[in-house]
Amino acid sequence: MKSTLLALLLAGAATGSALAHDYTVPLLQSPYHPNEWTGSFNLSLPDFIDGNFFSDTYTFSPTLNGNFMANGGVVNFYGSESQHIRFQEVSLNGKKLDIADGLFVSGAHLFDTGFSGPLVLTVRGWAGPSASYSGGLNITTAVPEPETYGMLLGGLALVGVVARRRRAA
């Protein structure tokens, strides 16, 4: 009986000291640029407990195919220590973002960083009791370069010339 009670107390202490949440963030395609996507989010109470470590995981959906560039990050504006978040690690697909902790603002960001596959953002840190943060990603999928279109047109012209010669012969 004592060992069962001790095991329950230890399990409760382990889960109460850290908050871990998983979220799905929809990627919205720009109506003006078909290869630009945006995903944004914000988080505030009751998701934090004073002085506790938190770990949030954001999976962006839909999964984009191919290679793309990402810009964005997370930010916390605070007026008092109870609103302050100390970001410990922020990473996108395992690539760490640059973290800054200044006067009345903390956050992490990345600029023009290449990625492929599903996007998963992990945010870890310490939060005050009335803290909040928000974030977002802007993604640009690959756009064929003019040389690619030129090669395509040249190849089609060559196929047309060969087909015409075969028909004439």
Results as ranks from 00 to 15, higher is better:
25 V>Q: 01
108 A>H: 02
6 L>C: 13
99 I>M: 03
96 K>T: 11
130 S>P: 06
68 F>L: 02
65 N>G: 14
109 H>F: 12
50 D>H: 10
61 S>V: 10
131 A>M: 05
2 K>M: 15
153 L>F: 14
37 W>H: 04
62 P>S: 11
146 P>H: 00
148 T>Q: 14
147 E>Y: 05
150 G>S: 13
12 G>M: 13
18 A>S: 13
121 L>Y: 00
32 Y>V: 14
80 S>R: 10
74 V>G: 06
110 L>Q: 02
7 A>P: 01
106 S>A: 13
66 G>Y: 00
61 S>L: 07
139 I>L: 08
162 V>H: 01
33 H>M: 12
142 A>V: 09
90 V>A: 09
56 D>I: 03
101 D>P: 06
128 G>K: 03
39 G>F: 00
41 F>T: 11
78 Y>E: 00
17 S>V: 06
122 T>G: 09
78 Y>Q: 00
67 N>G: 12
41 F>P: 11
165 R>V: 12
168 A>S: 13
83 Q>G: 06
15 T>P: 13
100 A>M: 04
113 T>A: 10
167 R>Q: 11
37 W>M: 04
141 T>Q: 03
30 S>T: 04
24 T>G: 12
22 D>V: 04
62 P>A: 11
13 A>M: 09
78 Y>D: 00
41 F>Y: 06
163 A>W: 06
5 L>I: 12
111 F>M: 14
32 Y>C: 12
140 T>C: 06
98 D>G: 10
141 T>W: 00
122 T>N: 10
157 A>F: 07
147 E>V: 14
132 S>A: 15
51 G>D: 04
137 L>N: 01
138 N>I: 05
